[in-house]
Structure formats: structure tokens, C-alpha cells
Measured scan of single mutants.
Amino acid sequence: TTFEIRVGDLRITLHNADEEEIRWAEEALRRGIHADEILRTLEERRR
């Protein structure tokens, strides 16, 4: 599944994310964390 998060002009697309990952990514985007860093962190958490 694919889920797109939008916060203002910012956007990130997550693939195969669970609800916790989606909530975490949305909050991180709101705090101004760059999408590349969010994706990198999620990848590390999945390992």
C-alpha cells in the first residue's frame, strides 16, 4: 500500500507503512524534518 502525507507544501509518500510509522512520519514532517531523513529513519527502524 502507498500512503501520502501532506503538511502544507511538504509531501512524503510511504510504501507498506503501518499506522505507527505513518503517525510518526506525519509528526516528523510537521516538525520540519526533511523527507529523506524520515525515509532513512523508517528504513533503519524496520531492520
Rank of each mutant, 00 (worst) to 15 (best):
R46V: 04
E21L: 05
R47H: 13
R23Q: 10
D18H: 09
E26C: 12
A25L: 07
E26M: 15
L14T: 01
R46Q: 04
A35N: 12
E44F: 14
L39T: 06
T41I: 09
T13S: 04
L10E: 12
R40W: 11
T41G: 09
V7R: 01
I33H: 06
E37I: 11
H34P: 14
A17Q: 02
D36A: 08
A35Y: 06
I12S: 01
L39Y: 15
E37H: 08
L39D: 02
L10V: 15
E21A: 07
I22T: 03
N16S: 05
T2K: 07
T1K: 13
R45E: 04
R46P: 02
I33E: 08
R40D: 07
L14Y: 02
H34D: 13
E27M: 14
R31I: 10
F3Y: 10
I33A: 06
I33V: 13
R47P: 05
H34Y: 12
N16A: 05
I5E: 07
A25F: 04
T13F: 03
E21T: 08
R45G: 06
R30I: 10
D36L: 13
T1F: 13
T1W: 10
L39E: 05
E19Y: 10
E37Y: 13
E27K: 11
G8Y: 04
E19I: 11
F3C: 15
L42M: 05
R46C: 04
R47S: 11
E19P: 09
A28V: 04
L14R: 01
E44S: 14
I12A: 01
T41F: 11
T2W: 15
E4H: 03
R23M: 10
D18M: 08
E44Q: 13
I38Y: 01
G8H: 02
H34E: 12
T13N: 03
T41H: 07
N16H: 06
I38S: 00
A28P: 00
L10C: 05
E21W: 05
E4C: 12
L10Q: 14
V7G: 01
T2I: 15
E4K: 01
L29I: 06
A25H: 00
A35Q: 08
R46G: 03
L14G: 01
T13D: 02
L42D: 00
A17I: 05
I22H: 03
L39H: 11
I33N: 04
I22R: 06
A28C: 08
G32R: 03
A35W: 03
T1G: 15
E20F: 10
F3Q: 15
R6L: 13
L39F: 14
D9A: 09
E44N: 11
E4V: 05
L39I: 12
R6S: 13
A17C: 03
E20C: 11
I22P: 00
R46S: 04
R30S: 10
R31C: 07
D36Q: 08
E37W: 13
R40P: 02
I38E: 00
T2F: 13
D18E: 06
E27G: 10
R45Q: 07
R40C: 08
A28I: 03
E27W: 15
E27Q: 12
E21Y: 03
E26T: 15
R40L: 11
H34W: 09
E20A: 07
D9S: 12
D18Y: 08
I12K: 02
R47T: 13
R40V: 08
R47L: 15
T2A: 15
N16G: 06
I38D: 00
E27H: 13
R47K: 14
I38R: 00
I33G: 05
I22F: 05
L10M: 13
L10K: 12
L29V: 06
D18I: 12
I5A: 02
R46M: 03
E4Q: 02
E19V: 12
E27P: 00
R45W: 14
A17E: 02
E37V: 13
D18C: 08
E4Y: 04
F3N: 15
T13W: 03
L10W: 07
W24I: 07
R6E: 14
T2S: 15
N16M: 07
R6Y: 12
R30Q: 07
E27I: 09
V7H: 04
E27D: 10
A28S: 11
V7I: 11
R40H: 12
L29Q: 01
R11C: 13
V7W: 11
R47G: 10
D36G: 08
H15G: 03
G32V: 01
A28R: 07
E21D: 09
R45C: 05
G8T: 01
T13V: 12
H15L: 05
I12C: 02
E19T: 08
A17G: 03
A25T: 07
L29R: 01
R11M: 14
E27Y: 13
E37T: 10
R47Y: 14
D9G: 05
L14D: 00
E43F: 14
D36E: 13
I22Q: 04
E27A: 13
E21G: 06
L14I: 10
R45A: 09
T13Y: 04
E44G: 10
I12M: 09
E43G: 09
L42H: 02
